[in-house]
Design a protein around this nucleic acid. Structure first.
Lengths: 353, 353
DNA sequence: CTGAAAGCGCTTACAG
DNA sequence: CTGAAAGCGCTTACAG
């Protein structure tokens, strides 16, 4: 490949010094460089297709136009990749790239990741979790925006119990409430929650929303079934709840879309038609599952794209506001993002209502 | 944060010059630096927890210890993230990081990605596709290992029709054959293939393997059903094949695990028990699906982790062999990686065999 | 208005 | 055996 043009090449072609090239190309030409030379420099730069060497720039400015991303498990993610996608898009719009390290939930690996990223001179740090959880940031917060001149840091799909870091998380409570409310609006009264695993933070929050909606409707809450997040867990839970002679619930709220797929399997095996005999709501809006179940699954969408975008934008804002460190946005603690209901075909009015 | 130690700091502490520090720390001490000074330098480096600034190193050596990855759609990937994981692990073991750009299948975006990566001085290039396909590398191959001093480039889960680039791909034909053979070994004779979409390269290859196995067994090949790769497609195809009064196939080979989930749904609705009444094989070993279907799905595993590892290792090997450019491994064209059968519970001997 | 110089942190010839 | 110098490509004070 032809050696990439340097500012020296541009200077030579324009017949000026490298300083002049740098000044003009960085918008500091007016008042410093004559109009004629400015034009010559611009023309030369265009002719040589010049763009500054990012590495040299980085050494000089101690900035890398790179956002370091540490994540606990993106490989196994599925839909969670959208978080990264959102962050990457937003970053790219400002000329930033993402340097992602997957720690597979290993704390030692995580420490190493931060050290590596620091060494690579990343301008900002984003920690993203596969599933919603508390995240205890490294004790050494010195690289953080807490200190003047520190590296801005932000959390996505996880939150700092100590509230030191800004965090973008899904509004799970509202999501659970909205899903329940939608069922209530369709006339359902006997709505069973198939919850995820007890360790899952999201699960508890969604249950909270469910209970709120039921209480607001003046309805008793039937026993919550602990299912889980996989197909077989949803299947087993559905079998437990639906395979009975007495009255069955008319609707189930599933831990996620995969569990809902298990419910579909159980319903099919029991000869129950969805949505005629049973209404089903999922959670996640998993693109590999929800749109393709038969019938297509009504579900609550997790705002992965939005979390990624918001987190990256927050970082970018801080990076831009370097003129005045006090001018930085002050949004500390968790910011809850909307989990919209995606209506498809798995809900109808109950037969006996 | 305390300013990171530089080689000057180490030199000062050890009472030597920066040159000496560099020499010793890069293993060129013997014969150049006295034993006493070597020891002093090592001690100083350890005390200051010194590691060279990667950015400065990069400017100096024109190397970045970074592998650029261009991918057509990793966000929507699911299991495909494992390819990146494999590449990242392998790269990390040699001190390399991955700089990933997702082009969302846009050629203009792709060109920009390569330019960006070149600007960032990546040492090598990896192109990874979400699903197996032909990949026409950019016309400007000048950054490629084709030319002396060019950037090594490799393909994963896609292949260069022109054979200019090394490529790691799954051995889909063997995968399709193995799945079929397994069914044959269990006594099945009437095995229907629910194929993916006609555009999908993998689908055609798997079908080829299926036909080979059937032919080798001296069996006629029943009409192949074009299904697709989503749950509803598998469902519809299964309904078409299974919902009949005459003899039904005793086994189906599915386009992928999600389509197999659709087959499960159809079977349940038709009152067919898997595996008693119907044996099912999937493809992909999708970790969100296959292990959790009821019964757990026997499937063919796609070697995403292995493709990522192999591609990264190939790049690393080339990067290491910089002493002699002629010494580079010559594995041009596609290298087929094994797709192992993962046996679970969805296959039994046919009732009428 | 303009160019020469310094310096970001590193390594590799080059003198001594 | 060792240190001073040059240079990777850039930008920002600093003289003129």
């Amino acid at each position: 490949m032809n050696r990439k043009a340097t500012s020296q090449d541009v200077a030579d072609l324009a017949g000026v010094s490298r300083s002049a090239v740098s000044l003009v190309l960085n918008g500091h030409g007016d008042g410093n460089i004559s109009a004629a030379n400015q034009a010559a420099i611009l023309a030369a730069a265009k002719e040589l297709d010049y763009s500054p060497n990012p590495v040299a720039l980085s050494l000089r400015t101690r900035r890398s136009s790179t956002i370091g991303v540490v994540t606990d498990a993106i490989a196994t993610a599925g839909y969670a990749g959208r978080l990264l996608q959102g962050a990457a898009e937003t970053a790219a719009a400002s000329g930033y790239l993402l340097l992602v390290i997957d720690t597979r939930n290993d704390r030692a690996e995580e420490d190493r990741a931060y050290a590596t990223l620091r060494g690579r001179q990343v301008d900002a740090l984003l920690f993203a979790a596969l599933s919603l959880r508390a995240y205890e940031p490294p004790a050494d917060l010195s690289w953080t925006a807490e200190l003047p001149g520190g590296t801005p840091a932000v959390l996505a799909n996880c939150f700092d119990p100590g509230q030191r870091l800004t965090a973008y998380v899904p509004d799970e409570v509202a999501g659970g409430r909205a899903a329940t409310q939608f069922l209530l609006d369709h006339g359902h009264r006997d709505i069973v929650l198939l919850a995820g695993t007890p360790e899952a933070v999201a699960s508890g929050l969604r249950e909270h929303g469910y209970r709120q909606a039921m209480a607001d409707a003046g309805l008793p809450v039937p026993p919550v079934v602990i299912a889980g997040f996989e197909i077989d867990k949803g299947y087993a839970a559905a079998m437990q709840v639906l395979d009975r002679t007495g009255p069955r619930p008319t609707a189930v709220l599933c831990a996620n879309d995969r569990a809902a797929a298990g419910v579909y399997l159980a319903a099919a095996r029991l000869g129950l038609d969805i949505p005629r005999d049973l209404s089903v709501v999922g959670y996640d809006d998993d693109q590999n599952v929800a749109p393709w179940l038969v019938p297509a699954l009504t579900t609550v969408r997790l705002p992965h794209l939005e979390m990624g975008r918001a987190a990256a934008q927050w970082l970018l804002d801080r990076l831009g506001a370097d003129a005045d460190p006090d001018d930085r946005p002050a949004a500390l603690g968790p910011v809850r993002l909307d989990c919209p209901l995606v209506v498809r075909d798995s809900i109808s009015r109950p037969l006996r209502s």
